[in-house]
Design a binder for these strands. Sequence first.
RNA 1: CGGGACGUAGCGUAGUCUGGUUAGCGCGCCUGCUUUGGGAGCAGGAGGCCGAGAGUUCGAAUCUCUCCGUCCCGACCA
Length: 504
Amino acid sequence: MAKQKNAISPTREEDYPEWYQQVVRAADLAENTPVRGCMVIKPWGYGIWENIRDALDGMFKETGHKNAYFPLFIPKSFLQREAEHVDGFAKECAVVTHSRLEADKDGILQPAGELDEPLIVRPTSETIIGELFARWVQSYRDLPLLINQWANVVRWEMRPRLFLRTAEFLWQEGHTVHATAEEAIEETHLMLRTYADFAENWLAMPVLRGEKTEAERFPGAETTLCIEAMMQDRKALQAGTSHFLGQNFSKACGIKFQGVQGKEELGWTTSWGVSTRLIGGMIMTHADDDGLIVPPRVAPTQVAILPVTPKEDSRVQVLEACEALSKEINECTAFDLPVRVEMDDRDLRGGEKYWQWVKKGVPLTVEVGPRDLENGTVFVGRRDLGGKREGMKREEFISSLEDTLVAIQKNLFTKAQDFQKENTREIDKREELYEYFTAKNSSKPEIHGGFALIHWDRNPKWEEQLKNDLKVTIRCIPEGVSVPGTCLFSGQASPGRVVVAKSY
RNA sequence: CGGGACGUAGCGUAGUCUGGUUAGCGCGCCUGCUUUGGGAGCAGGAGGCCGAGAGUUCGAAUCUCUCCGUCCCGACCA
């Protein structure tokens, strides 16, 4: 055991996409199924999603939103109501055309009972929710209408990837109606701030907030705001979006109300969503060559207790001590919730068991053996410190537990933030930009590039060219700071820098 | 959906070009013994209609065709 060995092969450096898949598998998060593009989310992965869901749900409720549930199916004609919207989603829709199966002569089941109007499995619910909102909104007194739904959606993706792009995925979609444009716009900013807050404080994933360019906008939106995170291969991941839909969907769905003056007006709507993709982002932000690292706030188990029972005669005492420790840990709180602890008393060899938890990314492992019982110590491993393990007094461990979990959470964020900063550059010369995004070794491209902050005159022509030449896109126009400069393509005036990166 | 690579046990693979006895190997799994603050050792064992279908052939994992699936690059996207 002299040589350091990595639990995940290949390493990030060797083959990043393959590393990602191996991490997902080693951590037992999810796997592919017989249904193309559809994954099964296994308990450890789903536990993370439950924590994400619960945290966000609380935030939505704090900001005045209520949950509801809308149909899985959308009549084709609904989707067709908004021209840009249908254009954007038509190519990736699952379509239901029949209502039953009938056995033919050879006993083979055939679709039968053709529907008058095909139903689309929702790729997103603006049109069906809009239809119902039109019924619910009559008066300015009904506004604002602030609704969220937790649901699954289907987008028939050509190139699925676990968590990042699956044909079916879990998400939440918020849909709101407001009396004025200003109020709706403020809503989109509020939800974007909520997403950024969640990403940074729960997932420990630093994000940039900004607005999408016209080319990158949600189909049917007036403006799309987004949060963008940097993965360890320095690509950008769109981690959440918040759309100001103007009156486009109100027009399409007939969301009208009588204003204070008695005049009939169209509502102003928004929609916003995050999905199980967040888990993909979390993985690629924190995981290392030994597997996953889950930030404590979303970890299904924060502390794994591993009894070490080398001798039969001390076995019972060790297990009892672990049981007691487990109880005591559970009585502690961290992040205002009871600490989630699991005792792993499976009949496995110690080292093996320990490594399973490392690969799952549990924040803390606590090993307890006979010697610890005598000395009143525990052997603690912190996943974020690369598995460095050390003995400490039991009381000390308990009393510092909350601080430790908070420190892990913070450390993960800081590390990710440093990484993002190191790989973000202001670039003012076109050649430099091209060099930045060109791999040195074209036959086997190394990880290169990052975020480039460039001045752009807002002419879509250059955006198109960037995409063609370098396969990079303008990820967002960052919020807040806008120092004018000179466009690096045209030499024309630029109202402020934009973020350019390769994306997922 | 375009270009490329590839499907052999749960995972990773040899064999495929140059068709030919019971398809090897490593990890994992099961059993036993040994070991025990560490992803261990030894021994034994289970597990494959070689992705599916059709064809060529006396004979196909191997050759041909068609599907299906996976991965990478592109287009698209949460």
